[in-house]
Design a protein around this nucleic acid. Structure first.
Length: 285
DNA sequence: CAAGAATCCTGAATGC
DNA sequence: TGCATTCAGGATTCTT
């Protein structure tokens, strides 16, 4: 499941593909619906025709394709990869990947394909002006790898919550870009039990968490993202961070720190992994 | 307001 | 071997 490091790797792949300034010649859309709802619509897709790429940005788990329309209006294609979404840069004559839902043909040859077997992802094109005032990107919390993010920021945004700290970290309005994998990893690194109520954490725990969140995300980035099953980069390449995960996906295996058997759990319909000895409800003094 | 469940979806993994 | 069932989960929406 793509989280911040995976989406950032996709962004970097697109930035390296040298697409800036290339105009869009054609847009093809499959008949299968992608994510729908109050925000996600197909209506803006036609704006892509004739637009050209300015750059690729990212906010949390959202990939932002920054464009300028044919009549010079600033646009963004907001792309969420959901669970199985992939953005692939392909040559002009490349065949469609399975479950391709959007193909954008650029002048001079290259194509961008959006494929997504489970269709939990979405693509939404709108003016920058509209996107700044409404929609999921407008409501995101701070970037965990951004300047000034630390335990104090997390504490400020989460300390009043009675929810489990793991649920607070998964809340994109609290901090943008974390999912199941990196939350499990960060809580392990910080030595905090996932189900501890956020309001009961000491400041020292928030500080450790602020450091740990950045550490695990940076490691994910360095390793080209985590490919447990579906994630691929813009050339179809797998990440390598799955080999570096300390706890996620390793339930039943020995804790890399103390050797105790790692504990898999489900909470709020989402699974996680922890070490009961290294992440005790009450910390040893 | 918050916690939990249902919803969307397909392919891989598991069960018999 | 083959068919049926289960599971996976990000974000939203509904229910309690």
């Amino acid at each position: 499941m793509p989280e911040l490091p995976e989406v950032e790797c996709v962004r970097r792949g697109l930035a390296r593909a040298d697409l800036d300034g290339k105009a869009i010649d054609a847009v093809w859309r499959s008949s299968h619906a992608l994510r729908t709802g109050a925000f996600w619509r197909d209506e803006g897709l036609h704006w892509l025709e004739g637009a050209h790429t300015v750059r690729f940005d990212r906010r949390g788990k959202f990939l932002l394709w920054v464009l300028r329309s044919a009549d010079d209006v600033p646009l963004q294609a907001v792309i969420h990869l959901g669970m199985t979404g992939r953005v692939t840069v392909l040559a002009a004559d490349a065949p469609l990947l399975p479950h391709t839902h959007l193909v954008v043909k650029l002048r001079g040859g290259p194509q961008l394909h959006y494929s997504d077997p489970r269709r939990f992802g979405g693509v939404h094109v709108d003016t920058v002006a509209a996107l700044e005032s409404a929609g999921p990107v407008a409501e995101l919390g701070p970037e965990p790898l951004g300047r000034g993010f630390n335990g104090t920021v997390l504490h400020e945004r989460g300390r009043r919550s009675k929810r489990a700290i793991r649920d607070v970290l998964l809340d994109q309005k609290v901090v943008a870009g974390l999912g199941n994998i990196y939350v499990s990893e960060a809580l392990f690194v910080a030595g905090i039990p996932p189900l501890a109520p956020a309001a009961e954490l000491h400041m020292s725990a928030w500080d450790r968490l602020g450091v740990a969140v950045r550490e695990v995300l940076r490691q994910g980035l360095r390793n080209g993202g985590t490919t447990l099953r579906d994630y691929r980069g813009t050339s179809g390449e797998r990440g390598r961070n799955q080999n570096a995960l300390k706890v996620y996906g390793r339930a039943g295996q020995p804790c890399p720190s103390c050797g105790a058997s790692l504990h898999g759990y489900v909470h709020g319909g989402r699974s996680g992994v922890m070490c009961r000895r290294c992440q005790p409800a009450r910390r040893r003094r």
